[in-house]
């Protein structure tokens, strides 16, 4: 009997049970099933030419198009790959001997392990006793600027372009006739750690250069936070910061120049953060940033598709 109908199977069995042996008339023929098409054409991807043209000038997610109401598969895969990069950056730990190997004064916060570092920002803002003692005995005191390299939320960024940024920044500062503190590197550090370090070495300006919270496609970005007159208790309103310091954002060389201009302004005005007057710096910052044409940056493609 036709497999299409459970009831017909059951009735045929019942009929047999009731003693009717004569064959039933043949079932009507099953409908013909069309063979599948030789090639299944996917839903056409819809893209805006305007957004695509705009996307050539930015690494932002413009002009990614859509398929029906959804993202195209390669866009979804790219998202997932970029998210994996970000996860990995957050999960990476700065090796204990990395600072010493690179000739930096090694410091450590009160955080015990990486997990605690992620869960307890407050502990990442203070040095442990051994580091504080080492800082007091080994670091140069009474300097104009104390730069601090740190891992922050991306040890990958710190190990990647951290040294380049530290060197560029130091060079630019010295070129402007400022004294620069002992190069140092803090592990498990949060931004506000610069307050305690700057206070301990008696620096006029403290600058912490640390890996920033990774976003999609930027696991290797550094941020720099500058504060005038560092002491524990300063707030974010007292700081100036610069983010996206990486090859596809502001390259370390350029960032070093801009940070030096900013530091000079802090020392001249004797303040930082909201109170710092940036109005007269526009020209200088522009010059430091380099106003020459810079080719548009392309988003790094982790997933390649054939079009």
């Amino acid at each position: 009997m036709s497999a299409l109908s459970r009831t017909r199977e059951l009735v045929a069995a019942l009929r047999h049970e009731l003693g009717a042996q004569d064959p039933l008339p043949p079932a009507p023929p099953l409908p013909k099933v069309e063979p599948p098409p030789v090639r299944v054409f996917p839903t056409r991807r819809t893209e805006s030419r305007y957004a695509q043209a705009a996307s050539a000038h930015t690494t932002a997610l413009l002009g990614i198009g859509h398929v029906g109401t959804r993202y195209a598969t390669d866009v979804v895969l790219q998202f997932q790959a970029e998210l994996a990069v970000a996860h990995e950056a957050v999960g990476t730990e700065l090796p204990d001997d990395w600072a010493a190997r690179n000739g930096l004064l090694p410091l450590r916060t009160r955080v015990a392990d990486h997990r605690e570092f992620l869960l307890r920002p407050d502990l990442g803002r203070r040095l442990d006793d051994a580091s504080l003692a080492r800082l007091r005995s080994d670091a140069r005191r009474g300097v104009d600027v104390q730069p601090i390299l740190a891992d922050g939320l991306s040890a990958v960024a710190c190990m990647g372009s951290g040294l380049a940024l530290l060197e560029a920044y130091t060079r630019e500062l010295e070129a402007r006739g400022l004294t620069v503190g002992t190069p140092m590197c803090a592990k498990f550090a949060r931004v506000w750690l610069e307050d305690e370090i700057g206070e301990a070495v008696g620096a006029k300006v403290a600058a912490i250069l640390l890996g920033e919270r990774p976003g999609l496609g930027t696991g290797d970005g550094l941020s720099a936070y500058l504060v005038f007159g560092p002491r524990v208790g300063k707030t974010d309103g007292d700081r100036n910061m610069m983010s996206n310091i990486h090859a596809r954002g502001t390259p370390p060389e350029q960032a070093g120049r801009r940070l030096a201009v900013l530091t000079r302004a802090m020392l001249d005005q004797g303040t930082s953060g909201v109170a710092l007057d940036l109005a007269n710096l526009a020209a200088e910052l522009g010059e430091a940033a380099g106003t020459a044409y810079r080719a548009p940056q392309k988003r790094v493609r982790l997933v390649e598709v054939e079009r």
């Binding site: 017909r8 009735v11 045929a12 019942l14 009929r15 009731l18 009717a20 039933l24 008339p25 009507p28």
Partner: peptide, 8 residues
């Protein structure tokens, strides 16, 4: 024939 389908 009993229980023969009476096709609609």
């Amino acid at each position: 024939m009993i229980l023969e389908p009476l096709l609609p």
